[in-house]
Design a protein around this nucleic acid. Sequence first.
RNA 1: GCACCCGUAGCUCAGCUGGUUAGAGCACGCGCCUGAUAAGCGCGAGGUAAGUGGUUCGAAUCCACUCGGGUGCACCA
Length: 1064
Amino acid sequence: MSASPRFVKPTHDFNLPKVEREILERWSAAGVERQALDRRDGRPTYVFFEGPPTANGRPGIHHVFARTLKDVVCRYWTMKGYHVPRKAGWDTHGLPVEIEVQKELGISIKPEIEAFGIGPFNDRCRVSVFKYKGEWEKLSKRMGYWLDYDEPYVTCDNRYVSSLWSILARFFDEGLLERGHRILPWCPKCGTGLSSHEVAQGYQDVQDPSVFVRFPRVGHPGQSFLVWTTTPWTLPANVALAVHRDLDYVRVRRAANDGAGEELLLAEALVAKVFGKETVEIVERMSGASLVGERCERPFDWLPFEGEGRHDLLVAGDFVSAEEGSGIVHMAPAFGEDDHFVGVKEGLAILNPIDAQGRFAAGIPLVGGQFVRDANSELVRELERRGKLFRRDNFTHAYPHCWRCKTPLLYWLRPSWYLRTTRIKERMVAQNREIQWFPADIGTGRFGEWLENNVDWAVSRERFWGTPLNVWSCATCRSLQVVRSEAHLRQLVPTLPDGFDLHRPHIDAIELPCTKAGCGGNARRTPEVVDCWFDSGAMPFAQHGWIAEPGKAPPQDHPADYISEGLDQTRGWFYTLHVISTFLTGKPASKRILVGNLVLDAKKQKMSKSRGNTVDPWQEIDAHGVDAVRWHLIAQSHPWLPRAYDPAAVGATGRELFGTLWNCWSFFATYAELDQFDPRSQAEPQMMARSELDRWLAAEVERLVEEVDAAFARYDLTKAANLIAAFVDRKLSNWYIRRARDRFWGRGMTADKLAAYTTLWEALDRVARVMAPLAPFFADALRGWLEPGGTSVHLDSFPSPRAERRAPELERDMEAVLDVVALGRRARSAAGINLRQPLGCVYLKGADAAIDGKLGSRFAELIAEELNVERVVVADESRLDQLRTLKVKPNFKLLGPKLGPKLGAAKQALEKLTTEQAAAVLRGEALTLYLGGAPATFTSAEVEVVLEGKPGFGVETDGRMLVAFDTTLTPTLIAAGHVREVVKRVNNSRREAGLRVADRIDLHLAGPAALLAAAEAGRARIGDDTLAVVIAFGGEPPTGDDWRSFPWEVDAEPLIVTLRRIRG
RNA sequence: GCACCCGUAGCUCAGCUGGUUAGAGCACGCGCCUGAUAAGCGCGAGGUAAGUGGUUCGAAUCCACUCGGGUGCACCA
């Protein structure tokens, strides 16, 4: 033996997690990740934006999924020759962080934070936000998500904040950043308003009272307006009622109940719904318009009306409907958008009796100091005491809650800063059409509709840990100015120390001279901070510290080619990115958006900590290997559908795909080691010099490359994964290797063997490359096994399909061969004759004459071996007549439109035709039938002829092809079967004895005479197939240290195999 | 309440520009093969295609409604 072999048979069992750990070490030692991320060398850039996570929570299994979607695409384009920068980012500001710190400190409301001190509080936030940074980085590394963590963008860095300021200043310049008084969703616990996309995150079912209240009609004793509300706590703030001008209203008299003759006014359409079975008498009909201006008496008169504003009357409101309630709506202009809108229009008074924590003012009777929602029941009782309550129920409805602290929100009149997104809505809608969404209907549907219903973005937060809003307001003249960047601030305040932190509370202390000519006043910063969704939405700009200026070009990597996040980001990150990019550049932030859906548990339940059904990503990765996790998550179904995470299924992926590939590799290595095969040392065999099977596999490999490439290019990762898995299972492992196995067995290196090695090596190599984006670890391991010391697959290129190797005809022919063989196995199984028993002859009939010719010649040997028969015979007409009948069926696609309702009759008539008539059709003859007396002619294309096997001949058919065996067993065949039985037992014995495949043996066989006789006659074959050098038959099995005996049964008779390894 | 997605074998999913006999994998049962060996292959059983109605010669596929699941929207007063 000369040099040591290039390939070595693996001596250990397959263990994917272990393989992955080795690859991690290799990547780390060789700096592979860094090289892949940094590769430029004149490549075009493929731009990816990373949505920043907040690292104050642990990453879960759904993050593994989300990050796989990002990673696969980035790896693919890297292999396609692009430079794909992947700058990591951290989302660091905002309510989620503050809430965590509040929990740490055991405090819950704003005044407590102020007492603790904004400075120390924010210092804690800055630390908290990176609490799990290490774990995020570790998980990214372990799962193979390559992301550049060396210079991440961090939203709380001065540089980032400075960039945000410049962008806000541009909104301000254009008049799109304004302070407004509007009804705002307000979290009483956090003490801040929320934006619509935050509200959208937090709907939960709650039970609320549903009460009908009497509002006495002034000037009409005994009459009341009937009013419905689900928020009794807003009744003390009532100033008016609203009716719809165009609705019909009625005055009804109640018969004899408690009210004894009372009269109630409500919308006519709701009478039945409100009174149900109770009989009421309609006294008067009137229009809504006629009620406008009527006076009413509010139920609670605790709050005085001061100054201006009309009150205690009926006004008109377009929003009033007769769907529910009474058609008369109670108006509290401080607590509802419609109420407020109408209130402004009608000049109504505004009563605002609650504080920022959602508590009634202390001076209010009965409920003073109570949290408003808690006051509901007390207020309802009071209504009852006052005789104002008509009815009370409860009803359950979805109500918005604070997305972080879960407190029910209040809609409350409150000043806030707005980005006037409604003014750029048309641009946003138009630009959305430029985005390629995966799936497309998110863009037109969910996201498109969201844009159509756009409302201004309430962008300020009355909080502490966030980008300070960069608007200063003059205490004297109220004029506003914005600070455009940190540099700008330094111009304005030259004394600012180095390292000045732009956050609160430091920034609050900065006063600026008023810029208005002649004012001379001092401007103070408006106290709010900015919605943290603005931070992340601005990342295409702020990640580069880009400073916005009028007319300035965007960063050169804008827009991105690709982003991917979860479905929940539709109204989150995807939206805020879109607002800011559209405003600044007129373009969307990314050309393509791939949306991932939820990862549910194995029972399709949402994972949540409270249910206790969360899946620990580390445990899954350790158990199955992350490539199996990644692969399964991608292959299971399209990313935008919800998926169940089933650990058992992940394990199966690991075994089936990676285990099979491992076996393929192991097979290759076993023989490559023995033969010292080295693809470098020989010229690659010409394709034309290789066997048909080799050319077939090579063609299929190129087809795979083409199809996988196309699937990746259209972002169909699921298809790519399934194509690869199907190829490995069906083509590579279960056909090529199985059929080519014995070509690797002979001694010495023949041309055919070299061709087989080369073909298999090439196939494995290309599989490694095409699967690399999906299974980065295994692919790189396989690549390393195939080319020891070579470069990482991730620094290599995605293979280009070699079109010249494609062989469409051969690919189709082999499909037919596979089908014939499957039928043949089914036929043998049905006949009860196992594959070891050779048979004399198999009769075949393929789908058409062209394939018949090939089955009988080029593929005959292959089929004969696979089905263990001596001869393959393409059945001629007379043989076929014995084996099958023919049936004629309509070609529905052609005849449906032609015959219409007569198709059914035609079908029946055709089915009655004889085999002879059908055979004529097969020969291409036209067919004339009488349908209901009228002749109808069918061409051979308009009907289909199908085969049916005749019973009793062991025929198997799929309607087009046919396989039948001659099951006659001659003594020769039986003897040959015996030899195969013996070979199998000897080889099983070899394995049980722990021999290596190339070990030679001495062999002794003991058993029934007929079996031994057959074996003796076939000793050459046994010797070849079991590497037995000396074979002895009959007598007592030898004994001794080296000899080992194995008892078997053949046809219910004992066979004793005794063997020993020949040393040296 | 409104909108969107989904409902196919015990489980996970294909198929869905309508074509009559609805597929695959897993799991299960039986058998086979094995010089890749705690793998592999074949066969079988398993389906009122959620339900109802419609369009059509023909519907898992198109339409309507109902039920169930998911998601989103929504101030529901």
